[in-house]
Simulated assay, not measured.
Amino acid sequence: MRTLKTATHPDVHTLEDKSVFHRLASRAIVVRGTDILLLFTERYHDYSLPGGGVDSGENEVDGLIRELKEETGAQNVRNIRPFGAYEEFRPWHKPDYDVMHMVSKCFWCDIDEELGEVSLEDYEVKNGMRPVWVNIHEAITHNKETMAKSDKQGLSVERETFLLERIAREIAC
């Protein structure tokens, strides 16, 4: 899978003498015209692609399907095709590691029209996460405003905005 970008958080100056936690994530790209299925997170006031960490013993496609179903209620996930990977190095918030190295592998896919029930984790519920269909350009504009003006933005908003811009270029809308 092609690497779209490698990003390093400004607080990560070097990996020398650092303990690094490696995480593989899968993210879904589901589009209908100029609308895209995203997660809106109230806590961070941003839009993100559905997806998350691939569990031990799980491949990236199985992780993608599981995460997409849990976070959006997607049904009959099919026609899965690679889009690209976003690699990042950022500070790790737990005491056992200094840095997290995450590779987010993104895949195009199709789903049934109707969404089913979501099965969010406790922290996702507390953060006010919910699936929404939104115009991709509106989501990009919204995320850019959050990056420019909000003090509550999360570490993922730059990744998500970059990916949304690349997706918008590829669907040429």
Rank of each mutant, 00 (worst) to 15 (best):
R2F: 10
R2V: 11
R2C: 01
T3G: 06
T3L: 00
A7S: 15
T8D: 08
D11L: 04
H13A: 13
T14I: 03
L15P: 13
L15N: 14
L15V: 12
D17S: 07
K18I: 04
S19L: 06
V20N: 14
L24K: 12
L24M: 03
L24Y: 01
A25W: 02
R27K: 12
I29R: 06
R32G: 02
R32K: 08
T34F: 00
T34C: 01
I36L: 02
L38S: 11
L39S: 04
L39A: 01
E42V: 13
Y44K: 07
L49T: 15
G51I: 09
G57R: 02
G57M: 00
L64Q: 09
E70K: 07
E71Q: 11
E71V: 13
E71M: 07
T72Q: 01
N76A: 12
N76K: 09
N79R: 04
R81F: 08
P82V: 10
F83N: 07
E87R: 04
F89P: 11
F89I: 06
R90L: 03
P91F: 02
P91M: 02
W92S: 10
Y97R: 08
Y97A: 07
D98I: 02
V99L: 06
M100Q: 12
M100H: 06
F107L: 13
D112C: 01
E113I: 05
E114C: 06
L115Y: 01
G116Q: 10
D122T: 15
Y123V: 05
N127L: 08
G128K: 09
R130H: 13
P131A: 05
W133L: 13
W133I: 13
V134P: 02
V134S: 07
N135C: 02
N135Q: 05
N135G: 09
E138C: 01
H142R: 08
K144P: 02
K144D: 09
E145C: 00
T146N: 08
K149R: 10
D151L: 04
G154L: 03
G154V: 09
V157N: 07
V157F: 03
R159V: 12
E160N: 15
T161N: 14
L163K: 05
L164H: 11
I167Q: 06
E170N: 07
